[in-house]
Amino acid sequence: MIEQLDQMQQAALAELGSINTLEALRAWRQRYLGKQSPLGEISKGMGKLSAAERPAMGQRINAVKQLLEQAFAACETELQTAAQAAELARDQVDVTMPGRPVQSGRLHPITQVLREIEAAFAQMGFGVWESPEVESDEYNFELLNIPANHPSRDMWDTFYVQTPQGADQVVLRTHTSPGQLHAMRYFAPGPTRVILPGKCYRYEAVDATHDMQFYQVEGIAVGDNITMADLKGTLAQFAEQVLGTVKIRFRPSYFPFTEPSVEVDVSCTFCQGSGCRMCKHTGWLEILGAGMIHPTVLRNAGYDPEKMSGFAFGLGPGRVLQLKYGVSESRLFFTGNVRFLEQF
């Protein structure tokens, strides 16, 4: 019986070596380990053995069985691995072929930069407001200390809307500054701290850098003891947040609705202040106008200018785009040109 077993084991292992499909492997198992297998037959013959021989024989049979089972498992794993590898090979692609296109949209660069600006000021406690685009002369000029027939009116080339004979003048707002009045009149005599982004209009022929329509962000903070130093700190933080590491500087300037008034420059974002063509070799780029709100404007808004003070600024997202990304042609903003839009 033992020879029988040895022969059978050798035959089985020899046969296993030539098996290369899972079906054949299963048939092999049936043949050598199934009920009808020689091993089964041998097991059945156990009864004929003496009680003394039986344990040894039993152990021997089990050993063979275990050996064949292990051989089966190893072969099965090997075949499965090979089958999977073959499957994966069949599934191979040329990875240099282009991917499936995704239809992805985008926000207008002005919307994108407005959000950055809004976020920067939100961190400093500024709410976001809107005000009308079509304004009365009163809000656009008079209340902002820009009386009719004052030479400072020349600072704004204005679109007027046709109104009936004898009626007050209506303008397309030339700046977001009328929003100052709307916001302050809401909050006065309490403190105000808001920014007002929006579309503005100027009677200005369109060329590469001028447009009859543009965006502006007005900012105002009114309260107890708000100073020029606060304005400087606020704008420095804004510049840092939106433009990265830059320095700012103030130059005296003039706006009828602020006193003192300043023009604000940032260190050149292209040459980091060492001087280049963009900054005309000065190391500085103009970014916005600002100042302490004029007492007359505060009074018009319902504040006592002796008790409350505040600052105001007006900055252009278009200018920020220019300083941030070198967008040199603002006239592309409103053309809807996809080749422009898809760059942002």
Partner: peptide
């Protein structure tokens, strides 16, 4: 103006909405 320091707003904040 280069001698004017950069300070943070300390004034009271309005109720924002």
């Amino acid at each position: 103006y280069h001698n004017v320091p950069e300070t943070r707003l300390r004034a009271e904040l309005p109720v924002q909405y």
